[in-house]
Each structure stands twice: as structure tokens, then as C-alpha cells.
Amino acid sequence: MPSSRNPQLNRHGQLQHLLTLDGLPRDILTAILDIAAPFTEVAEREVKKLPLLRGKSVFNLFFENSTRTRTTFEIAAKRLSADVINLNVSTSSTKKGETLLDTVDNLCAMQADMFVVRHEASGAPFLIAQHLLATGRDHIHVVNAGDGRHAHPTQGLLDMYTIRHYKGGFEHLSVGIVGDVQHSRVARSQIAALTTLGVPDVRVIGPKTLLPTDVERMGVRVCHDIREGLRDVDVVMMLRLQNERMNGALLPTAQEYYKVWGLTAEKLALAKPDAIVMHPGPMNRGVEIDSAVADGAQAVILDQVTFGIAVRMAVMSMLAGQ
């Protein structure tokens, strides 16, 4: 088995699985965004369906809770005419002790064509992809819908789609990513995509306890002062503050976090006047973002959700067509 190959690409260099944006070639990233554009138009038709995945079975395999991501994957697959099977893992065999790969093997025996996987363990989708390759089932595709702290590639892609939609490109932008980068798979995918697409100025903004120690190596600038970090940015990407982080010694209280790091209109005024505000959801209003900003004219948070459907359609139709 060739181990030097990017595990997401087949021997022709085409996308076989989508596991991470880290190391994904720029032309593939751009191709996904290009293909997603015409998919946005399907939502305006009487019949919101395309025949591309007709007869294919897509299994949503969510070992971790999610509403938005699972739902938009489901809508995307259904708009492509796939049969979608949602596995409710809380009542599944995993609870009875079945291993991840045994679950996968069983679903393969039910003629699965694609797995959309969310798992609390980083690398779980990669493990499944390797297992499929090792067992000669390379007609089955894996899409990572978020694994541990590692990656959330479709979120990163829909964020790039949103930025390109509003800003027209990447080469001239300043982008600030604010909040808990340390525990965020979303941030890792965003950083990988932004740097690959040639954004010259990516800033990660947050308290020392919530930024990875060697984050500069990802090609970003570190700011421990939100006012300095937001100055003249074109795009503000807020991250969700995971409430469970409050319990450790990483943070004092939600109120204090909001006071220092929460995005308010006053702090947003430091960014460019036409800066857009993004958030991957779910939002904690009054913790990382003020309601006036979340519902304000610069917020594109709900567009992110809509674009997410088109981007996921693009990814699934690219994979299934290889």
C-alpha cells in the first residue's frame, strides 16, 4: 500500500475521501468551490433535486451530537437524490460494544456508498478510509463531518465559499479568527484553507490558554489583544466557546470572557467598515458574540448555513463521480 500518497486522493490525484483540508492541493479546494456555485441555484427550483447520486446510499454516522451539520449533510444528499440513512448512535451497537470498524463493515454489507462521519476521536474518519482501502472497497467514500480537535473540512470549505462570495477572492484579505482555537477543529480547517488559498494575513486572536503553543507554524499571526487583532480585517471568524472549557483552569467565567473577547459592535468597528462576521454555530450569545452583532448587517452567519448545503453537494458529487 503506498503510504506516501495523500490518503484523500486516488491514484489519479482525484478526491477519493474528504478527511482534512490540511495538505489538500489548492486546485482541488478551488474546484470544490467552483462546483458548489451552480448547486446554490437548485434551491430556487420547483423540484429541488438533481439525479447525480440516484441509487446511492449515504450513511450519516454521527458518534457525536450535531444538528446543523447532520441536517445539512442530509439535505445535500437528498437534493442529490441519494438515499440517506441516519444512524442514531446513542441507540446503536456501539453502545453494546461493537467497534467502529465492525460497524463500518456491517454498513458496507448493506451496500453503503458513502459514509459521513462525525466522531469525538481525531482520526476516526481516516481510520475508516484506511480500512476501506486495505479491504479493497475503494468505491466507498468517506466524508469527515468533524473529528475530535482535528478537522471539520466541509465547515472550512463553506467558510471559504462564503468569503469568496462576499469578498470576491482571497489574495488581498486580512482575516481574524477569534476565540478558542486550541480546541477547535473548525479553526484548524479554516487556517489550512485560508493559507492554501493564499490569504496573506491570517490572525488568530485569543487568550494564551486557548491558542495552541506552536500555532505560528501554521502560517498565522498570533494576537493576544482582540482590539489589535481586529484592526482593519476584512473577515471576522468567531469560534464557539465550548462551555466545558469553563470547568478547567483555562478560563475564569463566561461573563469575564465576554468582557475581554466577546465581539461587540464597538470592537467590530475596528475592522474594515465592510468586514463580514462569520460564526460556525451554535452561537453562545453574550459569551463570544453580542446579539447586536450576530443579528447585525455585517453578519453572514445564516448564509454560511445555506452555502453549506451547496458545498456539501459539491463534495459528495465529486466523490461519487470518481
Binding site: P38, T40, E41, G321
Partner: peptide, 23 residues
């Protein structure tokens, strides 16, 4: 119309790399 999403050879040839928006 761009018929990329309706082609019957999608299963063998894959998706056209730069589909246009149908209007």
C-alpha cells in the same frame, strides 16, 4: 442550461470540473 448535473455518463466520467449555473 448547463447539463453537467444531469448527464448520464456522470457515473463513468465524473463531474464536469467547471459547471455553469443554469438560468
Amino acid at each position: 442550461i448547463d447539463v453537467s448535473f444531469y448527464r448520464d455518463d456522470y457515473g463513468t466520467k465524473g463531474l464536469h470540473p467547471q459547471p455553469q449555473r443554469s438560468e
